[in-house]
Computed example of a mutant assay.
Amino acid sequence: MKLHFSLAIASIVLLADWVSKRWVESTLDYGQQVAVTDFFNLVLAYNPGAAFSFLSDASGWQRWFLSAIALAASILIIYLLYKHSYNKLLCIALSLILGGALGNLWDRVTLGYVVDFLDFYLGDYHWPAFNIADSAIVVGACLLILDSIKTDRPPSSQPGSSNNS
């Protein structure tokens, strides 16, 4: 898959995440919940930490630490997209993760926290609120697992290839 196609996927995720977060912020007050179904609310929540609010109680250093990790991961992902362009599933997975990482990085750098708004629940148990960026990262991670169990190899390492040593 061409690098520009992978970056287009990441950009679509980034844009969808940014637009949805700005819409929720302009529509809801902090902490406000809007029931959508019997198991899903829209809610405006802020997460200064990582997944499941990990490090959210830290004194502020986590903002830049988590931003540095997201930036380093994004650079590594772009390299991997270039290096493994022959593997379409891997590139789609990495593109989704890249778009999600950049979406949350944008919030963290510009706001100091990540905007979350998707609230799924069962009875009184609520899954931690999340956003489109988080969803893209999870889907991308699942696709990475799927890619890791498939048996395809790069074209140059297929058995019988003239490029084998």
Rank of each mutant, 00 (worst) to 15 (best):
Y79E: 05
D17H: 09
N47K: 14
H126A: 11
Q62S: 12
D107C: 11
A16W: 07
I97H: 03
W18L: 11
G100S: 11
I75V: 15
C142N: 11
C91H: 05
Y125T: 05
F40N: 00
N41K: 07
P48A: 15
H126I: 06
V43K: 14
P159R: 10
V114W: 04
G123R: 14
S20V: 12
V19P: 01
Y79N: 09
D29E: 15
S26H: 11
L76R: 09
V115L: 01
N47C: 14
L94D: 05
W64F: 09
N104D: 11
L28A: 11
M1F: 10
L42G: 06
V13W: 00
W106P: 04
F52E: 08
Q33Y: 04
D134L: 03
Y113L: 06
L14T: 03
P48C: 15
G103I: 07
K150A: 05
L14C: 07
V138L: 08
T151M: 05
R153K: 13
T37Y: 01
A45W: 02
W23C: 13
G100D: 02
I75T: 14
C142D: 07
W23G: 07
G60H: 02
Y46N: 07
L81G: 01
Y79V: 12
S85D: 11
S6F: 02
V34P: 00
K21W: 06
H84E: 14
N163H: 08
I97R: 00
A50L: 13
L96A: 05
L15H: 01
L111V: 04
I12N: 06
F117M: 08
F39C: 11
Y46R: 15
V36E: 08
M1W: 01
S162A: 12
L44I: 13
D116Y: 10
S148F: 09
V36I: 15
W61S: 10
W64E: 10
F54T: 12
F120K: 01
C91M: 08
A72I: 14
A68P: 01
D116T: 04
M1Y: 02
S148I: 03
L15F: 15
T37G: 10
S74M: 08
W23V: 12
A45E: 08
G112Y: 08
S161L: 10
N41W: 06
Y82P: 04
I75Q: 09
A16F: 13
A73K: 01
L15D: 06
S74D: 06
E25C: 06
F65D: 02
V43C: 10
P48Q: 13
D17V: 04
I9N: 00
G31M: 06
L80F: 13
L55Y: 13
L15V: 15
C142Y: 03
V114D: 05
T110A: 08
A136N: 09
S135P: 04
Q62M: 13
K83S: 15
D152S: 12
V114R: 03
S56K: 13
S156C: 04
L42A: 10
V115Y: 04
P48D: 14
I132L: 15
I92G: 02
L42C: 06
A101C: 09
L102P: 02
L76S: 15
I9Y: 02
A51P: 09
I78N: 00
W127V: 01
Y121I: 05
G100W: 00
L143Y: 04
L14P: 00
S95V: 00
S95E: 03
S11E: 02
S95R: 03
G103Y: 05
D134Q: 09
A35K: 15
G112K: 09
D134T: 10
A8M: 11
M1Q: 00
L80R: 02
L96Y: 06
L71T: 05
